[in-house]
């Protein structure tokens, strides 16, 4: 479970001064639920997810992941999450197996435990064909599957996915989407950011629309549609951030 309360994070920019990238964000995400952070580029999605994964430290607010406080116990928080982003790279001179072994051992998964986990992810993601090939010889889709395997090798109860389909073709994105559905059925807690409406529509139980560092609307897809009186998620989004769509028939 993820609980976020009044999270604040600012950056100092030489030209623009202090910028609040995340401005009093609060939300909750339960096991077996996919919570989507939907917003345009620069809305504060990546900063929020980095705060949750403890790469960044918040200026104010509280983050609890699986009952561990991210500020007081960042080590336990990191152990509980699997983190994946669209531009996650792989060590190109290592094979998939070596990379998985490296990350598994950093998470304390070793020996027989590791072999068992490896078998599971190899079967689930069909890695056997290219598991022992150096990753710079792999296709984008194959690399993405290794990255997914890397994300779940330690069986994290929480998944934090930062635009995981960004820059991927349809086939590679489908692998990610299937992976998210699978993880949801395994009762994992999944936080997922995207600016692709269709993905949000298809996967998320609840959506938080984020704009200029604030969550401007939140709810299930149905609740949002009712609130903004339109079936079109794109329209919901535009109305939530205070913009009217420029329709030709308007």
């Amino acid at each position: 479970m993820i609980t976020v309360n009044n999270l604040v994070k600012g950056f100092t920019d030489k030209k623009r001064g202090l910028i609040k990238a995340v401005d009093s964000i609060s939300f909750k995400c339960l096991p077996g639920e996919v919570y989507g952070l939907l917003g345009p580029n620069g809305a504060g999605k990546t900063t929020t997810l980095r705060l949750l994964s403890t790469i960044l430290k918040p200026d104010a607010g509280q983050i609890k992941i699986c009952d561990h406080d991210a500020l007081l116990n960042p080590g336990e928080v990191r152990r509980s999450i699997g983190f994946l982003s669209g531009d996650t790279g792989l060590y190109r001179r290592l094979t998939g197996r070596e990379i998985l072994k490296y990350f598994a051992s950093l998470y304390g998964v070793k020996g027989a435990d590791f072999n068992q986990r490896l078998d599971q992810v190899v079967r689930m993601l069909e890695l056997s064909e290219f598991l022992d090939t150096k990753t710079d010889k792999l296709s984008t889709g194959q690399k993405q599957r290794i990255s997914i395997a890397r994300t779940v090798i330690h069986q994290p109860p929480v998944l934090i996915l930062d635009e995981p389909t960004a820059g991927l073709d349809i086939i590679a994105s489908r692998a990610i989407i299937e992976f998210i559905s699978q993880a949801r059925s395994e009762k994992r807690t999944i936080l997922f950011s995207t600016h692709v409406m269709r993905e949000a529509e298809r996967l998320c139980n609840r959506i938080g629309i984020i704009h200029q560092g604030r969550i401007v609307a939140e709810g299930t897809l149905k609740e949002l549609r009712d609130q903004f009186k339109t079936d079109d998620l794109e329209e919901v989004f535009l109305r939530a951030v205070g913009l009217q769509s420029m329709r030709l028939d308007n």
């Binding site: 990191r78 996650t88 790279g89 792989l90 890397r150």
Partner: peptide
């Protein structure tokens, strides 16, 4: 440059 540092920073290693 290769985008692997972020993944490493999310690991439990200090």
């Amino acid at each position: 440059e290769r985008g692997t540092l972020e993944t490493l920073l999310v690991c439990p290693a200090t």
